[in-house]
Design a protein around this nucleic acid. Structure first.
Length: 466
DNA sequence: TGAAATGTTGGGGCG
DNA sequence: ACGCCCCAACATTTC
């Protein structure tokens, strides 16, 4: 009976897993995770904690079935080579990982070891969703049309065996690193599936509207689970397709379609990064690569710390630091503020998000930043500039989100909560909140920065065309 | 998956 | 009654 190493990377699940299904059918499965030493450095603490506690959860699930997760540390190629020798494995299976780093790594490994890859990070692999001439889509709407036209196959529903093959004790396995899962995000596929079912049973009905509300829990909050493959995207799409076939209120139908679209956006950006890996280094739009970004480290620091003087921006940036998560609408607002109002290179924000986001993923994060900065594929036109005060009033009408994350403004009346610097001094005194002392004066004025950024973008375009 | 600037319309106050 | 002005409300265009 052949021995097969199941190399786990960003697919911490047992359900709907083509590589695992294959391995279980073919022989004795040894689940392995290889901890790259680079991962142990002191960055991305929330994401790392979520991953580590996710590994523990997966190990616990495997132990219930008589197996376990073998944890190794070091260079993947070296460790896999050793493992193949130790276990006399015949084959290594894994899910395709489409990030540039992973593709290079896997290609190298496949040259010297029997590595067999299966699709599963996305519903459709990025090389499948292409135009008839084979070139990739760079605009979302045609991409999503082509995506929806591809033949969708629901997860096989293969039931997993009660018992997995046991793992011989002599296989070296490191102890799991200490980690506690970030607040609000229990790790693991059971939690992921429960969350999705709760979402589909309720919230999705108002999703089209409520997903934008900063003061409500209107989003699915599933991103960390997709990030680590604790939830299969194909499973999610299968569930939402099924729901769409049931009789639904117009609002519910709209909610389901909007959520499906979000799942397709995820695949769109995975596809963009797959076909255009250079977007990690520069703007997708060549005409906007020559923008003269401001070098304003004090303003960048104020943005990072949530001390810009714009309550909605500060609330969001503090939420990120405190929890590792930020509401999607808030991500757009703070990204627009950094790139447009402060005219600071969006890549600074991209890196900061990767450092702190529990769901940080190069494809979605880069895609989102390029979109907001207006320099990416199918990007918001660069002159589409968010007014942080209007966004705040529209999506946090009573200032509840602000009050939660910027407690020094807790008692500011609704009328002034989005722009506290407009409070009369007498009111500031009676509330005991002095703008400039207890909470910052805005570091820039939006109406002034608008013209500045428009000029900078225009200049880059002009340089490019001439 | 905007917002600001500019243009148009129509009702009401008023001489 | 009529024209004029103001301005809010809405529409269009511009960035």
């Amino acid at each position: 009976m052949p021995t097969i190493l199941w190399w786990i990377r960003r697919d911490l699940r047992l359900h709907d897993h083509p590589a695992l299904d294959y391995a279980l059918q073919r022989g004795r499965v040894i689940p392995v995770f290889i901890l790259d030493e680079a991962l142990l450095k002191n960055d991305a603490p929330y994401r790392k904690n979520f991953l580590f506690s996710g590994l523990r959860d997966l190990d616990a699930e495997l132990r219930k079935k008589g197996s376990k997760l073998v944890l190794r540390r070091g260079e993947p190629l070296v460790e896999l080579y050793r493992l193949v020798q130790e276990t006399s494995a015949d084959e290594i299976v894994a899910l395709e990982d489409y990030s540039p780093y992973a593709r290079i790594r896997d290609e190298r490994i496949a040259k010297s070891l029997p590595l067999r890859l299966f699709a599963g990070e996305t519903v459709f692999p990025p090389y499948m969703v292409v135009k008839s001439d084979g070139t990739p889509y760079t605009v979302f709407t045609p991409f999503s049309k082509a995506w929806k036209a591809l033949p969708f196959v629901s997860p096989s529903g293969l039931s997993l065996p009660e018992r997995f093959p046991s793992i011989p004790d002599e296989i070296l396995s490191f102890p799991f690193p200490e980690a506690s899962s970030p607040e609000g995000f229990l790790p693991g596929e059971t939690e992921a599936i429960n969350r999705m079912e709760r979402f589909l049973a309720g919230t999705v009905g108002q999703y089209a509207e409520s997903r934008n509300r900063l003061d409500q829990e209107g989003t699915s909050m599933l991103s960390p689970y997709f990030r680590f493959g604790m939830l299969s995207p194909r499973m999610a799409v299968s569930r939402v397709w099924k729901l769409l076939q049931e009789p639904l209120l117009p609002e519910e139908k709209k909610g389901c379609e909007t959520w499906l679209n979000e799942l397709i956006w995820r695949e769109f950006y995975i596809s963009i990064l797959y076909h255009f890996p250079h977007v990690l280094k520069m703007a997708f739009n060549p005409a906007l690569r020559a923008i003269e970004w401001r070098n304003a480290s004090n303003e960048l620091e104020a943005w990072k710390a949530g001390m810009t003087g714009y309550p909605v921006v500060d609330a969001a940036m503090r939420q990120l630091r405190a929890t590792g998560w930020m509401h999607n609408r808030a991500r757009m607002i703070v990204a627009s503020f950094l790139s447009k109002d402060l005219l600071i290179n969006w890549q600074e924000g991209e890196h900061w998000f990767m450092q702190w986001l529990i769901d940080g993923d190069p494809a979605s994060n880069n895609g989102g930043w390029q979109w907001t900065a207006g320099v990416g594929t199918d990007a918001a036109p660069y002159f589409r500039i968010f007014n942080p005060v209007l966004q705040s009033a529209r999506f946090d009408p009573h200032g509840l989100y602000i009050r939660k994350w910027v407690p020094e403004l807790r008692n500011v009346p609704e009328q002034y909560i989005h722009s506290p610097w407009t409070m009369p001094v007498s009111l500031q005194s009676s509330l005991g909140i002095h703008i400039g002392k207890d909470y910052p004066v805005p570091i820039v004025m939006h109406h002034e920065t608008r013209t500045r950024v428009l000029e900078a973008y225009r200049k880059s375009q002009k340089t490019y065309t001439s």
